[in-house]
Amino acid sequence: MSVVFNIGLYHYLILALVIFCIGLWGIVVCKNIIKLLVCAEFILNAAGINFVAFASYVDVENLSGLVFSLFITIFAIAELVLGVLLLISIYKYKRSADVEKLTDMKG
């Protein structure tokens, strides 16, 4: 059976790049902190995709990219948790999850 799309390394890379850009876009644009955190997951995991892709295409013997992506997931979660914690305590003060209102310190 002929394969219509021969999915290669570059597809993964482009996918990762797109996700990365979407994540960054989200971080820049989203007002809600939760959305922001989700977008943060996007960008971290985009890098994870890259690693996995490279591991399976370039570094076949060691697969250290795979390990790397695992670590990325772990730390992403840790940061997410921290973010949510902070959101909760901020919400106590501000009664809002709008990131644009968190501008007590500036200048």
Binding site: A46, F51, A53, L102, D104
Partner: peptide, 26 residues
């Protein structure tokens, strides 16, 4: 608030770092 700012900047930086590293790895 400062912590959250720190966190978000940190995440972006980490992501950029990872992205760069992934290419080098590649």
């Amino acid at each position: 608030e400062s912590s959250l700012k720190y966190l978000i900047s940190g995440i972006v930086a980490s992501a950029v770092f990872l992205f760069g590293v992934s290419y080098i790895y590649g």
